[in-house]
Design a protein around this nucleic acid. Structure first.
Length: 279
DNA sequence: CCGACAACCTGACGGC
DNA sequence: TGCCGTCAGGTTGTCG
């Protein structure tokens, strides 16, 4: 469940059980996920009150009244499960609150991880320091996109997956945004940025398409793929609104377009697009 | 500096 | 039914 809309939805779902609540139990159930759990995670979080929940790109942020923030990343298969009947073998971190709520960070592939640092040091957290703007924030504009992509020879698809250009997009939403903007994923990135002065129409269309698809997905509660339902607040249905992702062989949904969605591989990852209306 | 690619893990699915 | 290959929402490090 791991691109920006899914993390946004996850964080929203964690507010009710966590915000303003005290953590009475913090229990890693193994030494590591993709990275080791911080050695002092339990000691620094137990007894603390959660003051706010937030999101940066695909990272969730849980701040406490002791000046710490727990950072979590869901990797490919991670999600939070609230008040499950029993503990799953892939529940790697358990939290319990003063209200008796039980939360489990479940991640079969273990590409996710947890970190802990002083809230005041968030800006210098390496992953954040190198990160581009939030696509739904004020800094992400057509003009920014144009500047960030000029001189870039790589395909636009690869550039949009680069978190240093824009932070929070993943494979699904890049494919979807490029389709909405009618831009080919194979197009050289700099070609939407050529010429000085005003942004080109394609840069405008792309920035707009990115914001639109993310907002639509958040409204739908994100996308739920192979990891099934569950997680009290976590039933996203945006996968039903995919226009190209995982739809190879289907008719292109663009009005008046007679194309068929194709799957190609770019830099080891699947790309879905319409060769007819995406130029 | 840039781009390509392997590695980290488990599970689901299709083909034989 | 079972075994095997392939693929999956991400990130990071290495190599040329």
């Amino acid at each position: 469940m791991p691109e920006l809309p899914e993390v946004e939805t996850t964080v929203a779902g964690l507010r009710e059980p966590l915000e303003g609540r005290r953590l009475t139990r913090v229990e890693p159930r193994r030494p590591d996920m993709r990275k080791p759990f911080p050695v002092d995670l339990r000691q620094r979080l137990t007894g603390a009150e959660v003051t706010s929940l937030d999101r940066r790109a695909k990272y969730g942020l849980i701040a406490t009244d002791r000046g710490d923030t727990m950072i979590f990343h869901l990797g490919m298969s991670g999600r939070w499960v609230i008040d499950a009947e029993s503990v799953n073998i892939h529940d790697h971190l358990l939290l319990e609150t003063s209200e008796g709520r039980h939360l489990a960070l479940r991640d079969p592939r273990r590409f996710g991880f947890v970190d802990l640092l002083p809230t005041a040091a968030l800006d210098v957290y390496p992953a954040f320091a190198a990160m581009g703007p939030e696509p739904l924030g004020p800094a992400f504009t057509a003009a920014y996109l144009k500047t960030a992509l000029e001189n870039r020879v790589a395909p636009i698809k690869a550039m949009l997956l680069d978190q240093r250009i824009v932070a929070g997009l993943g494979n699904i939403y890049v494919c979807e945004a490029l389709h909405r903007a009618h831009l080919s994923p194979k197009r050289q990135a700099s070609t939407i940025a050529l010429k000085s002065g005003a942004p080109r129409p394609s840069a405008n269309a792309l920035a707009d398409a990115i914001k639109a698809v993310l907002n639509d997905a958040i409204k739908a509660g994100g996308s739920s793929l192979r990891d099934h339902r569950q997680t009290d607040g976590d039933l996203g249905y945006f996968q039903h609104s995919f226009r190209v992702y995982d739809r190879a062989g289907e008719k292109c949904p663009t009005k008046g377009c007679k194309g068929t969605i194709r799957r190609i591989v770019q830099g080891t990852r699947s790309t879905f697009f319409c060769p007819v209306c995406q130029k």
